[in-house]
Design a protein around this nucleic acid. Structure first.
Lengths: 223, 223
DNA sequence: GAACTTTATTTGGCACACCAAATAAAATTT
DNA sequence: AAATTTTATTTGGTGTGCCAAATAAAGTTC
């Protein structure tokens, strides 16, 4: 075979897209290297190849920007990833925190026909099981308005939209404290000593660290 | 990433398995090279690696044999391939001759959990859309008793089981003449000039070359 | 069995995606 | 602004999977 589609390239594109989303001010080779757990030299090399392909621009201040073409390609991969996640959860009965690694593989399957049919088969779901929006066929994606729990007030009820981290450890953790997309949360208090959060979920009461709270993204619940 | 599961290895294993099935007397590096469209030198190199991994035995007469371990692994890949084909046809509405290349990609997705759930979701299908048997979780596979149309008589009705070739061109061809797994066929006659076959399919009458007939595998139809 | 032909193996090379260590450039501190 | 620290880039190297061309071995023909 020796061609393996654009496995690596797609991963770079996704990483760049996510960094841009996270509004990292200056996306450098090292930042990408950290995100993908690679050596900066490797990233630099790849960025030059991807510049040639007009997928990224390398700006004079050494920052990296996705081109229109690059963004589109990134969104295509994200679409695939999220649709496969829906499939795994809705059809095969995986739980929402088991599917990330599998989708990471499936997203590289190279066929628009396949992914469009999958979309239709799943009923054109707007969100994946983590609460993230799924780009449509044309790459259109719903803007996420969720904010980290750490920027929220005590009192009102919030609904968990999605998460800012996707590490296994974190997802495992969320499973333990039973926080999932859609969960309704109230902040009961913040511990003055270690900044940990006391949360109310229905009738359950849960403690989470500040670090965890910062990665839980919520929207004000309507009631 | 740079690990790509065992993409190539799985392809070698499949090719070897198929050659053994086809009862090729002496499976040589060149035979495998031809099957996979590779250089014999490449195959030799790979076979040595796979020998170390105890996936194949390199016999003194230079022939290659799958070990128990190798066969098992080949069957795992074949199982995946065929289950994905069923999924693509039954759930996503692809036609049985469109799915091979997609399944070729999907079969390398590395998760037994996934494939077992898929199996269950599809209702443990015993055959894929081409009529080939699907190995179960343990690698058990139904013996195929089908024979090439070229070894059949004029007169009786046969049912198409599967095909000995999977090239796009051939599958396309079958689509044109509307021969699919399950089709009922009677041999009307063999043209003395070019050995081509006149077939009766229901009320349709079809001419196929000897080459094509040799790749159409059938079983006697029960009525 | 010598000559020829076919098949198998070795050799040297390539592209890809990666890394570690060395060097160069930029930013920060003093 | 000089010294130091941090960040970026270059350089040389790796493993995997591949190839073409050269050589060696096996098989065939005369």
């Amino acid at each position: 075979m020796v061609h393996f589609a654009n496995y690596s390239e797609e991963n770079y594109l996704k990483a760049l897209y996510k960094l841009e989303l996270r509004q990292v001010k200056k996306i450098t080779n090292s930042a990408v290297a950290k995100a993908l757990d690679l050596n900066p030299a490797t990233v630099l090399e790849m960025m030059r190849k991807m510049e040639q392909k007009k997928l990224v621009e390398l700006l004079p201040d050494k920052s990296i920007k996705l081109t229109e073409k690059g963004s589109k390609k990134a969104l295509r991969t994200i679409r695939r990833h999220r649709l496969w996640e829906v499939f795994l959860v809705k059809k095969l009965g995986f739980t929402w925190n088991e599917v990330h690694d599998l989708a990471e593989q499936l997203e590289h399957i190279d066929s628009d026909e396949l992914v469009n049919r999958l979309d239709e088969y799943l009923g054109f779901p707007p969100f994946d099981p983590h609460g993230d929006p799924i780009p449509d066929k044309l790459g259109k994606i719903k803007k996420q308005v969720a904010v980290p729990l750490t920027s929220c007030q005590q009192g009102p009820t919030y609904q968990v939209q999605h998460f800012a981290e996707t590490s296994d450890a974190f997802l495992q953790y969320l499973g333990q404290v039973q926080i999932a997309p859609g969960s309704k949360i109230k902040i009961v208090g913040i511990n003055a000593y270690d900044q940990s959060y006391s949360l109310q979920l229905g009738r359950r009461s849960v403690q989470v660290s500040e670090k965890a709270a910062a990665n839980i993204l919520v929207q004000p619940a309507d009631h």
